[in-house]
Amino acid sequence: MQTDRALILGLIEACHDAITIHADDLCELDRAIGDGDHGTNMRRGCEAVYLDRERLCCLALPQAIELIGVALVMSVGGAAGPLYGTLLIELGRRLSILENEGDFALIFGEAIEAVARRGRAGAGDKTLLDVLYPIQAEIMRRSTLINIAKRAVLSAELTADMKAMRGRASFLGDRSVGHIDPGASSCAHLTTAICRYLEEYRPA
């Protein structure tokens, strides 16, 4: 069993790399239906977490997740900062209360509900929730990491068919249809990076 230290460092690096690689694409998606800053904002957040990695990796995993959430709130901005921040803060807090006894799928579901409340959004509104809910469903049915990642990518693509109901993209009404939601896209990239990391480094 690897220590939390290696796991935390690995996850931080995997997410940081995924956002660095895709930052320009995320800005491009956001330019089409928003203000064009999603990639820049996410990169700023991942950079802040990455620079703090030596402190974060000394913590227990749940506490590290919560503090990464706080760091994202304080650095990302836009709607993404509070949404990703809420997801991780709620997830970390719940995991630390339950330690290893709780059912991760249920805890993850509760954290997603907190994100929905924060964004006053639901399924089908063309937000990162349209990736989070399907991921949660996959975890619930104990899918493999590869299938979870595939579902995340597919779910992000499906947001192209949706009309934006929240955020700046909603100002475009029907014209938001035909474009992938940038938040859903970053969520899919992060999920893929996390799943790939866990797949490679899963304890024997």
């Binding site: 901005g77 949404l83 955020g167």
Partner: peptide
């Protein structure tokens, strides 16, 4: 002003 300002203000207040 716009949505992100409200959401970030809510987070700041909670903090």
């Amino acid at each position: 002003d716009l949505g992100g300002a409200e959401t970030n203000s809510e987070m700041a207040i909670e903090m």
